[in-house]
Design a protein around this nucleic acid. Structure first.
Length: 675
DNA sequence: GAGCACTGC
């Protein structure tokens, strides 16, 4: 099997099946007819239907690339784009990167001969800045659209606009059943309206493809439970003692629950007789190092049942073969954004029916399976049909900035698949205005606003980086490293052997009194000096894969800046440390203030912080140097509420005067009693 | 005092 040998891909995708055996083969002619006839085709297909690999092949064979045009297939995740491209290339018997290729951030495996290109949806969005009508493509297929990710939603809106201008383009949207009608309605013209001579009826069509999964028997609890972790342990033990042997996948919501579950399970296993079939429990969540994640793919030893206890990562991002039993707690941890407070919150909420169905399906991939839902059937009936779209619960500043840069001036009346609440858009516009990206006319400022939009960074960080290049701050080299480290979102450090103490000790070695940003800078510098060593990372509890990613991000950011014609000021090495009498470390913190002035807080005597308006109490995240140390004013780069407590991460000590200097208007208005 | 679900440019 090709997939097993594909060492570049860390997680092994679905089992290989000969193309001709897939149910989709029988639908070939109907699919091609629909794509030829209708501008929009909605394909409804379960996982395992072969739609992602076969539809591009059919279109290729039918001549959709004859005139030098390409077929693009978008994926929400990098791993999917690369692994599916590899499979299609193999099926066609061509080397990857020739007729079939992929393009993801930092990796463009395509050539002049490429006809079918797999891309992440975010990357295709960026491509629209250069080629707004996507003229090089004859067909664009948006896969996994039912996941309703921020970028696939925006992409669909933009494709609708492009279709109004290009009658030769075909759009294929692949979706789970429940959302298909919604997608079709979105694309088709209104009643009585016509687009390129086509009315609602002849503009789009839905085609269903059956999957090839095995039946999964579903069982429910009779009564609701208030402790699903305990019930999960009960269910594991009951499968272990009463069902035929088979690997088990358990869905819980987060790391702590997973650890608890494993602890409780090991207590219960200790009671078992030694000659019984054994249980091997393995945690799975994104925060684990790659090596630890790989354990789940290893075959269990003889007479051993694998029990994988996972977050939502196993629902769509990671596919594990040979799972026979699924245990679903019925909840998921989901991020929402409070536009009034500007705070993101991680809440545990009930899953949607679509999610529950997807989770259950994980049991039937290789043979008939069973799914145990840790809630009553009546509860399932009341679940939402689909997960709340990301666009309705996110900080929209990055999206709004991107739309404005694409020339969409009225972001309020933009044709969203699901319009976000206006408070989210207003908040985003306010922020962009305060950062100087937005002119009073509603257009992006030039060059600041357009440059901020082009950088693959959130707006506050983009502005910080652009400020770093100005003579007053002169700290571009340093800020590039800091920005790259910040994109790791707190995942620079990792505990290799589960030792929390070791991790904290490693962190302390790099810590400096000025705060977390300069600490991150020290980590980056030390990593590069180590020769990007794996052993060095292990010794210092650092995630090597992520550190390498920071190096790539830094390179990409530097490339953008040089394209803007922005470079580090040509200071001789003796001048670098002081500019106009200001030391480097202070310039860096002043520069951070210029981008993150809206994220200021003041420390109280008990070690907690208050926001500038005095309304919210914040706590330094335990990973921050200010978890132990004192400061007065700080700016922070990230804020998130978990379990009723608001945590800030990545803090730097600043002076009140710097805040007023950085944003006199912002702070004056606040003193005047806004909000 | 004690901790981030998951993606992506």
């Amino acid at each position: 099997m090709a997939d097993d040998e594909d060492t570049d891909v860390p997680l092994i995708p679905e089992l290989y099946k000969p193309a001709a055996l897939l149910p989709i083969a029988q639908l070939r002619d109907q699919l091609l007819y629909t794509i030829e006839t209708f501008p929009v085709t909605i394909v409804v297909g379960e996982t395992g239907s072969g739609k992602t690999t076969q539809i591009p092949r059919f279109c290729l064979d039918a001549g959709w690339c004859a005139d030098g045009k390409q077929i693009a297939v978008t994926q929400p995740r990098r791993i999917a784009a690369t692994s599916v491209a590899a499979r299609v290339a193999e099926e066609l018997g061509t080397p990857l990167g020739q007729r079939v290729g992929y393009s993801i951030r930092f990796e463009d495996v395509t050539s002049a001969n490429t006809q079918v290109k797999f891309v992440t949806d975010g990357l295709l969005l960026r491509e629209m800045l250069v080629d707004p009508l996507l003229n090089r493509y004859s067909i664009i297929m948006v896969d996994e659209a039912h996941e309703r990710s921020l970028s696939s939603d925006i992409l669909l809106s933009l494709l609708k606009k492009v279709l109004r201008k290009r009658d030769d383009l075909r759009v294929v949207v692949s979706s789970a059943t429940l959302e298909a009608e919604r997608f079709l309605d979105f694309f088709t013209p209104d009643e009585g309206e016509k687009v390129h001579g086509k009315s609602k009826e002849d503009y789009g069509k839905i085609i269903s493809i059956e999957g090839r999964t095995h039946p999964v028997e579903i069982q429910y609890l009779l009564e609701p439970t208030n402790n699903y972790v305990e019930r999960a342990v009960d269910a594991i033990m009951s499968i272990h003692t009463s069902e035929s042997p088979g690997d088990i996948l358990v869905f819980l919501t987060g790391r702590e629950e997973i650890d608890d579950c494993i602890d409780m399970l090991s207590d219960r296993i200790a009671d078992q007789s030694p000659n019984h079939q054994k249980l091997l429990t393995l945690p799975l969540y994104a925060g684990l190092s790659t090596e630890d994640q790989m354990f789940i793919f290893q075959k269990a030893p003889p007479h051993t049942t694998k029990v994988i206890i996972s977050t939502n990562i196993a629902e769509a991002s990671v596919t594990i073969d040979h799972i026979v039993y699924v245990i679903d707690c019925g909840y998921v941890k989901l991020r929402t954004y409070d536009a009034n407070l500007g705070i993101e919150t991680l809440n545990i909420i009930p899953v949607s029916k679509a999610s529950a169905t997807q989770r259950a399906g994980r049991a039937g991939r290789t043979r008939p399976g069973k799914c145990f839902r840790l809630y009553p059937k009546t509860v399932f009936a009341q679940l939402e049909e689909a997960t709340f779209p990301e666009i309705q619960r996110s900080n929209l500043a990055p999206v709004v900035l991107q739309l404005l840069n694409l020339g969409i001036t009225n972001v309020v009346r933009f044709d969203y698949l699901s319009p976000p609440p206006s408070s989210l858009i207003t908040r985003a516009l306010d922020l962009l205005h305060s950062l100087g990206a937005l002119a009073p006319t509603g257009h992006l400022t030039k060059p600041l606003g357009t440059r901020m939009a082009e950088l693959p960074l959130e707006p506050m960080l983009a502005r910080t980086l652009l400020c770093a290049a100005t003579p007053a701050f002169s700290c571009l080299d340093e800020m590039l490293s800091i920005a790259a480290m910040l994109t790791l979102q707190g995942n620079a450090f990792v505990s290799h052997d589960g030792g929390k103490k070791q991790l904290d000790a490693a962190r302390r070695k790099f810590a400096v009194a000025e705060g977390d940003h300069l600490t991150l800078y020290n980590v980056y510098e030390a990593f590069v000096k180590s020769g990007m060593s794996v052993a060095w990372c292990r010794e210092h509890s650092l995630n090597h894969k992520n550190m390498v990613k920071a190096v790539s991000v830094r390179k990409q950011l530097a490339h953008y800046l040089s394209r803007f014609g922005v470079a580090a000021s040509p200071l001789s090495s003796s001048d670098v440390l002081r500019v106009g009498g200001t030391p480097l470390a202070e310039r860096i913190r002043r520069c951070l203030t210029a981008g993150f002035f809206a994220h200021a807080a003041r420390m109280k005597s008990d070690g907690s912080f208050t926001t500038v308006d005095g309304k919210t109490t914040l706590w330094a995240h335990p990973s921050s140097v200010f978890f132990h140390r004192k400061a007065e004013w700080v700016v922070y780069t990230e804020i998130m509420e978990t379990r009723g407590k608001v945590y800030v991460r990545d803090l730097s000590a600043v002076e009140m005067e710097w805040l007023v200097e950085a944003a006199p208007e912002y702070y004056r208005v606040r003193d005047g009693g806004r909000r």
